[in-house]
Structure formats: C-alpha cells, structure tokens
C-alpha cells in the first residue's frame, strides 16, 4: 500500500498539473503556414456552435473560417498563445479544450486527485480494520474453506502444488 501511495498518487497529480503549465508557451511560427500547423493549434480548440467537435476536424463552414483565421494570425507572426488568447477574448473560455487553471476552474483539476486520495485513505483504513491479528489461526481454516466452495479449483490447486 505504501508503495502505491508513494509512487502512483504524486505521479498522477504531477501529471495532471504539469501539462496545464506546459500548454502555455510555444515558439513563434515561421512563414508560410501549413495545414498541419493550423491543425496543431485547432486540435485543442472548440467552436461554440458545434458542441464537442474539435476545431481541426469540424466540417462546418464556420469552423473552416476559424481555421483560416488561425492561419492568417500565424502568418502575421502571432504566437500560439496569442491566438488562443484572441479566441478566448472573443468567444470565452469554452473555445479551449480544457478550462484555464484559474478561479473556480481549479476545482476540475483538484477534485479528482483529492477524491482518489480520500478513497485510498478510506480503503487503507478499511484494510487495517479488517485485517485479523496475525495470531488468529484463520489462515489455514480459511484456505480449506475457500477451497471447499469449489472442488474443481481445489483439485487444480492441489495438483499444481505437486513438484
């Protein structure tokens, strides 16, 4: 249990937070602008009309115009961050694939790891309360009882124990 707590949980929390930070900066784009450069940015953006369809694959005219807008901005030398900020200014936070980490939005990033840690703690406590003292001779009885509930497995396990 300790191993899990030490390794997995902090790693998970770090993973969750790290890429929020990583998504901030990108180098300026050289000219001319390729479709792939446009899509790299559009992939993590959403138009307010076509719900839950990323901008890079949305087939509507409105989204095609948005992609052209991204292309124009990239050609003008805007950075990815500037373009994102421009779209957020015009249409709100919902154009981003993830809520920006500020204010109430922090809840989305904090809640799942906290809930998981709480669950792990409850489970750990439950384990401790369930675990019988080592002196109790339950282990042997239990093995035989568990096996009795399934004679086939019993036979199988017995056979497997033979050299």
């Amino acid at each position: 249990m300790k191993f899990w707590r030490l390794l997995i949980f902090p790693a998970w929390m770090t993973l969750m937070w790290s890429s929020v930070a990583l998504a901030q900066d990108a180098p300026p784009t050289p000219l001319p602008v390729t479709d792939d450069q446009v899509n790299a940015l559009a992939r993590d953006m959403y138009c307010p009309v076509c719900e839950n369809t990323p901008l890079d694959v949305c087939p509507t005219k409105a989204c095609a115009e948005w992609r052209e807008l991204i292309r124009d901005k990239l050609a003008d030398g805007w950075s990815e961050q500037q373009i994102r900020a421009y779209f957020v200014d015009r249409f709100g936070d919902r154009v981003l694939a993830e809520p920006p980490p500020r204010g109430l939005n922090w809840l989305i990033y904090i809640m799942p790891p906290l809930a998981f840690l709480a669950g792990a703690y409850i489970l750990f406590r439950a384990f401790k309360s369930w675990t019988a003292p080592a002196s109790e001779p339950v282990v042997k009885d239990a093995d035989s009882e568990a096996d009795k509930s399934d004679p086939y497995l019993d036979r199988l396990e017995e056979e497997l124990r033979k050299p």
Binding site: N52, L96, P99, I108
Partner: peptide, 21 residues
Amino acid sequence: LVTNQKVTVGPPFYERATAPL
C-alpha cells in the same frame, strides 16, 4: 451555474487523468 460561463472539458483532461489509473 456559478460563473455564467461555459467551459469545455475535452480529451486532454480525461486522458491525462485516467491514463495512470
């Protein structure tokens, strides 16, 4: 409800959060 502003929670969030699990 709280801020009157809609946000999108897209694949990057889910992928990052669920992959270790």
